[in-house]
Amino acid sequence: MSDESGLSRRSFLSRLGAVGVATAAPVIARPVHAEVAPVVTGAAMDLEPVENAIPVSLKVNGKTLDLKIDPRTSLLDCLRETISLTGTKKGCDHGQCGACTVHVNGRRINSCLTLAAMHEGDEITTIEGLGSPENMHPMQASFVEHDGYQCGYCTSGQIMSAVALLKEPCGPTDADVKELMSGNICRCGAYPNIVLAIQAVRHTA
């Protein structure tokens, strides 16, 4: 079809597409200048000054880090934003999903519910300190072997809880495991394989 001006539908759409590309091109080409969080390389961190910051010394995955943080900073935000350990995930930020689970002095906690400043001198372990791709913790290896994940967002929290469960009083049945893992939510519904992965480690321990 064409109108009285002789402009066909195909010509019109072609011109419209060209205009769209021309409009978007400057946006695509524009360089992005993002603030990149520092990577932990030693005992001290060189950070931008924070208003009303307080000095805190945290021991994370065996390394002592001297930090200056806002006293209101949660342990979760400190791990992710200040120390750049992003394996610990922010899910609900209300202690309801378990994605942010870490170990403090060997016990699992929701890191979104506690302040970083409260843990000076404590032994903090995140998923990065549990194992590496080259040397996985048995629980990490079991989750891989038994497909204990789908999208993977909750997986680090699931594994940290599962490792803590190994040292906690827990009955032998799948129902017992489900009860002790009930604080960790998997929106993908990978629960049967999560339980299978945990039980596999328990039976070989």
Rank of each mutant, 00 (worst) to 15 (best):
residue 84 S to V: 03
residue 33 H to K: 05
residue 48 E to T: 06
residue 153 Y to C: 10
residue 35 E to P: 00
residue 71 P to E: 12
residue 95 G to Q: 05
residue 143 F to Y: 01
residue 91 G to Y: 00
residue 108 R to N: 11
residue 38 P to F: 02
residue 142 S to Q: 09
residue 71 P to N: 14
residue 43 A to F: 11
residue 39 V to L: 02
residue 135 N to Q: 10
residue 33 H to T: 09
residue 93 D to W: 12
residue 79 L to Q: 14
residue 44 A to Q: 13
residue 109 I to D: 07
residue 104 V to W: 08
residue 129 G to N: 06
residue 150 Q to L: 04
residue 59 K to H: 10
residue 119 H to W: 14
residue 39 V to N: 02
residue 101 T to N: 11
residue 91 G to P: 04
residue 75 L to H: 07
residue 40 V to F: 03
residue 78 C to Q: 06
residue 80 R to P: 06
residue 89 K to G: 14
residue 55 P to S: 06
residue 43 A to V: 13
residue 114 T to C: 13
residue 128 E to C: 04
residue 87 G to C: 13
residue 152 G to D: 14
residue 40 V to S: 03
residue 107 R to I: 15
residue 67 L to Q: 03
residue 41 T to L: 03
residue 114 T to M: 12
residue 56 V to Y: 01
residue 36 V to N: 01
residue 83 I to G: 01
residue 136 M to G: 02
residue 109 I to Q: 11
residue 63 K to H: 09
residue 49 P to Q: 05
residue 91 G to W: 00
residue 75 L to R: 05
residue 136 M to Q: 07
residue 67 L to E: 01
residue 52 N to R: 15
residue 59 K to C: 15
residue 73 T to S: 08
residue 115 L to C: 13
residue 145 E to I: 08
residue 72 R to S: 13
residue 47 L to F: 07
residue 94 H to L: 12
residue 84 S to D: 04
residue 128 E to F: 03
residue 31 P to T: 06
residue 52 N to I: 08
residue 76 L to A: 09
residue 130 L to G: 01
residue 124 I to V: 15
residue 124 I to N: 02
residue 77 D to E: 14
residue 94 H to V: 09
residue 118 M to Q: 15
residue 92 C to T: 09
residue 113 L to D: 06
residue 50 V to Y: 00
residue 71 P to L: 09
residue 137 H to C: 05
residue 113 L to M: 15
residue 116 A to C: 13
residue 98 G to L: 05
residue 34 A to R: 00
residue 124 I to A: 05
residue 34 A to L: 04
residue 81 E to S: 07
residue 47 L to H: 05
residue 103 H to S: 14
residue 98 G to Q: 01
residue 127 I to C: 00
residue 140 Q to R: 01
residue 62 G to R: 02
residue 98 G to S: 11
residue 151 C to S: 07
residue 79 L to A: 10
residue 108 R to G: 06
residue 56 V to S: 00
residue 129 G to D: 07
residue 82 T to R: 02
residue 94 H to Y: 15
residue 123 E to S: 05
residue 75 L to Y: 08
residue 99 A to M: 15
residue 40 V to H: 00
residue 82 T to N: 05
residue 150 Q to K: 01
residue 85 L to Y: 06
residue 145 E to A: 11
residue 108 R to Y: 15
residue 68 K to A: 07
residue 61 N to F: 13
residue 66 D to T: 14
residue 133 P to H: 01
residue 144 V to H: 00
residue 120 E to R: 10
residue 68 K to W: 07
residue 115 L to N: 12
residue 104 V to A: 15
residue 98 G to H: 00
residue 47 L to E: 12
residue 81 E to I: 03
residue 151 C to H: 04
residue 97 C to I: 11
residue 75 L to P: 03
residue 124 I to Q: 03
residue 109 I to G: 09
residue 98 G to K: 02
residue 63 K to I: 07
residue 76 L to S: 10
residue 66 D to R: 13
residue 133 P to F: 01
residue 96 Q to W: 11
residue 80 R to A: 09
residue 147 D to H: 10
residue 53 A to F: 11
residue 106 G to C: 12
residue 39 V to M: 02
residue 74 S to A: 11
residue 34 A to G: 00
residue 91 G to K: 00
residue 58 L to Q: 05
residue 114 T to Q: 09
residue 107 R to N: 08
residue 139 M to R: 04
residue 109 I to W: 12
